[in-house]
Design a protein around this nucleic acid. Sequence first.
DNA 1: TATTCGTGGTA
DNA 2: TTACCAAGAAT
Length: 320
Amino acid sequence: MLQQTTVTAVIPYFERFLDAFPDVTALARAPQDRVMALWAGLGYYARARNLHACARVVAENGGRFPDTVAGLLELPGIGAYTAAAIAAIAFGRPVVPVDGNVERVTARLFAMTDPLPGSRKAIARQAMTLNADRQAIARPSDFAQALFDLGAGICTPRAPACVLCPWRGACAGNRQGIAASLPRRAPRVARPVRHGVHFCMVDAAGGILLVRRPEKGLLGGMMGLPGPHWRDAPWPQAEALDHAPTAPRLRVNWRRVGQVKHVFTHFTLLVDVYAARISTFPNSLVGTEGVIHDMDRDDVALPSLMRKCVELARDSNIFD
DNA sequence: TATTCGTGGTA
DNA sequence: TTACCAAGAAT
């Protein structure tokens, strides 16, 4: 959960996850949709699929995790960082997990000025040597946690508190007066804008028509409002309505209720939201798709983007 | 090696 | 507002 995600954002998800799946075998035997529903809103949904797959592998092997970096790397969703973190924290192996915090501390400590992401391997190599110390080797878990906390609390991305840093005297970045500017990054490309359309169909009971998204790709395995693919060009209303969900002898009066802006990692999405009320869902629509009656239910795998679209439709009084 | 993957908080 | 960033992994 903590991969690329803040502790603050993770905590409530972590609590609910452990309530639902007290141990790895419970997670292994859970249906995937239940896992995705409890992950909904946290993002990077491949992590949920990988975690579930990982639990199944571990359960197959008697419910015991590998206790070496090499063994952990074999598991789905566990890469170099997570393997080292588990090995050090759970099994006391003398390795240094290199996350964004450790990367930043290392780049500053050794005044490494080559920009990320090209310098990533060199920084990681340097970081591996940080525990070349008798006390560090003796307590791999504490040393890893201490590095995280140094990066999160003292050696922060902006305005680092160098005067409070226990490593100030050894820090080449501080000595050269460039610590706060490290690690340097290659300039990032501008985020393009893409356009989508989604349809919020509501029945008399307040049910909303949902479809399951493909397993792979963006929001993979999650539920969503129906609509055509996202593309670079905007969708004129007439063209958008060609993609509205429909059924034989079903007359639907669509109304554009507004636009949702949603920022993904590598593009910004503008979604035109259309809403309509019908009396009851035809079987041809409900049969292969899903309907929810309460958006606040925690058993629906609805990502934040789709939640925002439904909220917009709700604000348009389509549910009244 | 470079892309693709979410979301929310903060300056 | 925009831009950046967070206990990265898979392809």
